[in-house]
């Protein structure tokens, strides 16, 4: 089929999340590997959402290297936002550190922030240390 069939897709940088983590636990089970990496805090910043990561509100519950994080954010106006983020870890970068491709989903109250719960997002993420954190840049699909 011709490339002419392929519609263009537009991505807009929406916001970034710094997710501080601590106390990672991981083990190998009979069916799959399991990670529990609690979220200790962090910030949300950027053009379309500002706020904080609610400390101790959740964790990454990754299985077989597929991230599956569940946690709460709070917008700067006080609105509670639930986030479920899935992501793939890629272990090949020049300096040997992993990078991630993520897709967050949100639930919010009806109102100013409910576009978050109707929009598909993808993002990049990298792991940083001292202190342990994930830095994620999130893009909205138009």
């Amino acid at each position: 089929m011709a490339q002419a069939d392929v519609p263009l897709i537009d991505l807009d940088y929406a916001f970034s999340i710094r997710l501080a983590t601590s106390g990672r636990i991981e083990f190998e089970g009979p069916m799959r590997s399991r990670v529990f990496e609690p979220v200790s805090g962090g910030e949300v910043f950027g053009p379309r959402l500002q706020g904080r990561v609610v400390p101790q509100s959740g964790a990454d519950y990754a299985t077989n290297n597929l991230m599956d994080a569940h946690l709460m954010l709070q917008a700067s106006d006080g609105t509670w936002i639930y986030m479920n983020l899935i992501g793939y870890e890629h272990k090949v970068t020049a300096d040997g550190s992993p990078y991630f491709r993520v897709a967050p989903y949100f639930d919010t109250p009806v109102g100013k922030w409910d576009w978050l719960g109707k929009t598909v997002f993808i993002g990049t993420a990298e792991r940083r240390h001292n202190p342990d954190q994930m830095l994620m840049h999130i893009y909205a699909l138009r």
């Binding site: 519609p7 899935i86 793939y88 890629h90 491709r101 598909v120 993808i122 699909l141």
Partner: peptide, 25 residues
């Protein structure tokens, strides 16, 4: 529609589907 599909595929030529973030319209 806007989508982020997850795949599972056996080891082999299609396993990249199970390791790759994909978005769909």
């Amino acid at each position: 529609f806007r989508m982020t599909p997850l795949f599972e595929a056996p080891a082999g030529p299609h396993e990249w589907l199970a390791r790759t973030m994909i978005v769909g319209t």
